[in-house]
Design a protein around this nucleic acid. Sequence first.
DNA 1: ACTATTGTTTACTCACGAGTAGATTGCCTT
DNA 2: AAGGCAATCTACTCGTGAGTAAACAATAGT
Lengths: 205, 205
Amino acid sequence: MAPADSPFQSPQQRSKARAAKREAVLRAAVQMFNERGFHQTSLDDVAASLGISKPTIYHYLGNKDQVLLECVTIGLSQLLEAAEESRRSAGNGAQRLIAFLTRYAQVNMDDFGRCVVRTGSEALGPESRAQFQALKRKIDTAMRELIEEGVADGSLAPTDTKLLGFALAGALNWPGRWHDPKGALQPAQIAEQLVAMLAQGFLPR
Amino acid sequence: MAPADSPFQSPQQRSKARAAKREAVLRAAVQMFNERGFHQTSLDDVAASLGISKPTIYHYLGNKDQVLLECVTIGLSQLLEAAEESRRSAGNGAQRLIAFLTRYAQVNMDDFGRCVVRTGSEALGPESRAQFQALKRKIDTAMRELIEEGVADGSLAPTDTKLLGFALAGALNWPGRWHDPKGALQPAQIAEQLVAMLAQGFLPR
DNA sequence: ACTATTGTTTACTCACGAGTAGATTGCCTT
DNA sequence: AAGGCAATCTACTCGTGAGTAAACAATAGT
């Protein structure tokens, strides 16, 4: 084993460093995409923000399309993970749905989640677009399943599953558009209040 | 007065024809924007779809930015009009809010409304963007006022007005993303059901 | 008939940004 | 020592698409 402070890197350290750089590129890219929009962001801009040059980005990622695809894939994976976690968790259907929705809203206020919300599938090339849409469909399906489980166990009022899914998705995606990460409002709070509001409806009981 | 079938046009007819052509350009443009996205649509494409050439578009509209701005302005005007109409209508606060929301959702499934939903403000240049955002803020404000009136007259449960506004806007903008105009589902039905669902919440009563 | 105005075209310019070629440096292996 | 691989740069190419110049046609007004 090498001394911890050796200036020479082990293979693991090297590949880890490589992965870290790759991720740094994605982080920088996604932040600029969210701020200015995908088409208003050149890879030269992204490179400059990291103090590197464009070819370096191409060293880590194939092309601009792939950069975007990776960003949204990360966001969607977080959502998918949230769905799976809720699936495994205890509680009745309504409780598990609410847990999922809360996490869902939070992810949509994070860098990669926001990118998912703000990216229209048209921005991607045909192959990437297909992957993107397939992933989104997976999330939709997961949400619907959670809803149906809730209806089945009686903890949710019976409704049109698809429509409820769309309504919830819309309401909880929207923060990805309006929420300002530099603002005072905390994502966790927004998520919780929003979900509570949706759960209750707005007519008086 | 000239004979009705004269091949010579009166000044009114000329300016009307001009306006009609302008609108035809906007219609063609907005449809392509919605389908392929703004950046994936060149003005050459739009022109071709009308069987004309690009400079003709420039004869009616200043530049691409302005084309988009006009499109979203039309959409937003429809929303604003809906708000004003609801303001003037009879009924308690909740009823007027619901009427507005229903119309709001419908507009968002129409060509120009969809364009509003699908267009990120980053796509526009600075001046146009400011106008766009100002208009959107107006809609937001109108919605919040409707909510507050409902709370004031007791027909709505008291809540965080801003948050409810965002939740409703999100849920009712979303159809502009997923609804397929060529699909079987009718916008009017979707709008009504969606609003009813939001009004009631999804927890059992 | 003559001129101005409106509508429309063809045929350009020009900038920007994605993507690449090839050189360079330095570490790592044999 | 030598060759190879990883990481990075400078300096390009090249397509696309916004926007324009200039000509042409048709209609309207004088």
